Simulated assay, not measured.
Amino acid sequence: MESPRVLFAAVAIVAASLPLAMSPPAAQAAPDGHIPLSVLREATLEVPAWPADDVRGPSGTLRFHLGEVPIEPRTVAAGEPPFGDAVTILAVTYGDVDRDGADETIVVFGCLIEGGSKQIVAYDRDRTGQIVSLGQVAATTGEVRDIRQAGVRVDDSGAVSVPVADYQRCCADATPQTWQTRGYARRHDRFVQVSGPPRMPENPHITDTTLTSGELRLGPKKNGSRYGSVTVTISHRRGAHPEKVTLLFAPPAGLRRSGDWPRVTSEPDGFSVTVAAPPAGGSSTHTFAFRRPAAATGGELSIDLATVPELSPVIPWATTATAPITVG
C-alpha cells in the first residue's frame, strides 16, 4: 500500500499537467471602428442599393478615389429616375452605434445630379482590421427627400440623429421645406427608426402628381394620312392637391391634332391643354387623337405635366412621358 506522501506527490503531478485554458480568458477589446476621412476617401466600401424612387447609382463593392466613384453617363426613358454623376462621400461622423464600447463610422453618401439621392451607412472594422458595413441607417426615399448631412450625429444611446426633409431643393429653387429630426438605432443587425415623427405633414407647396403614357398607335392609311390616339394617366399620390393640370405636347414634324380637343394654347415647342386634376390620392385618364401623313414613320411624342396652381414636383422626372409612335 502506497504511503500518503506518495499519493500527494502523484496528485500534484496530475494537477500541474492540467491545461491552463481552464482559467477564464481575458476579454478582448472591441475593434476600433473610428475610420479617418482620409482613409475612407481612398477605401473600398460596401455601399447598399440606392432608393428605387430617387436618383440611381452603383452599389455593392465600390472603390473610392478622392472620396468619389464616377458614374458613366446613361440615358434613361422618360419618367424613370436618372443616374447621378458620381457617388460621393458628403460627411462623416462617429459614435458607438453597436454598444461595444468603441466608436463606429457613420458616412453620408450622395448620388447627385442637380440634387439627388442620399444615404447614411454605418461602418466598423473586424478583428483583422478590414472595414465592414453595419448596414444602411437611412435614405432619401418615400416621404424623405433630403438629408442635412452636416446635422447627422450619434447620441449617447447609440442612436443616429438625422435631419430629414420632404423636398430637395436644387439650384435657385426656393420651395419651402418641412424638416424633422428622426433617430435610427441598430436592432437585430439592422437600423430602425426609434424616435422622431413617423410621417411628414402635408406641405402646401409640393405635390407628388405624376404622368404616364401609352404609345401613340396610328391605323391604316385613309385619304393620305394615318389616324390614332394616345392615352395618358395622371395620378395624385400625396402632397398638395392641384385644382387642374396642364399637359404640354411637343409633337414631331407632321403630327397634327385630330378630332375633338379641349381648348388648346400654342407654346414655343408645341401646344398645351388644361384639364381637371385627378381626385386626391387617385388617377384619371385622357385620350387625345392625332393624324400624320401616311408616308411618315417612327418618332415619338413628348408630354410634360404642370400643375395649376403651380406646385413643386416631389419627383420631377415623373412629370414627363414619351409616347412612341407606331403603326398597326
Score class of each variant (00 low, 15 high):
S133L: 01
W179L: 03
V87W: 00
A49T: 14
V6D: 05
N223G: 11
Q177L: 09
W179G: 08
Y184V: 00
Y123R: 02
G183Y: 03
R145G: 04
I89D: 01
H65E: 14
R237G: 15
E2L: 13
D98M: 02
R292T: 11
F64M: 01
W179C: 06
V192W: 08
S225E: 14
G67I: 02
S23Y: 15
D173C: 08
R169M: 06
T209I: 01
S213E: 05
G115C: 01
E42A: 11
A174W: 10
V160Q: 00
A277G: 08
R199P: 02
P252S: 11
L134R: 01
M1D: 13
D53V: 04
V121N: 02
T61R: 11
A253W: 14
T75W: 13
P48Y: 03
R226E: 09
C171V: 14
S117W: 04
R63C: 08
L112H: 13
D85L: 15
W50L: 07
A321G: 03
A139M: 09
D53F: 06
V87K: 00
G282H: 00
E243D: 15
D126Q: 05
L18F: 07
T128V: 14
K221T: 13
T326W: 09
I131V: 12
T210A: 09
F271I: 04
P242S: 04
G254Q: 12
P24W: 11
V144S: 03
Q149I: 05
E2T: 15
T231A: 10
S38V: 15
K221V: 14
D85M: 10
E68P: 02
E267H: 06
M200A: 05
V76R: 12
F8Q: 15
S258Q: 14
S3P: 02
G84A: 08
L216G: 07
T141I: 13
E215K: 12
V192Y: 07
P278L: 04
T93D: 00
C111K: 01
A27L: 15
D124Q: 00
S225R: 14
L7R: 10
V308C: 09
L211T: 13
R74Y: 03
S213V: 07
V108G: 01
I303C: 05
V154G: 00
L301P: 11
S302W: 14
R127N: 11
S266C: 11
R63A: 15
G281V: 04
E267G: 06
E143S: 15
V47C: 00
A159C: 06
T210S: 11
E143K: 05
G101W: 02
D156A: 13
A277W: 05
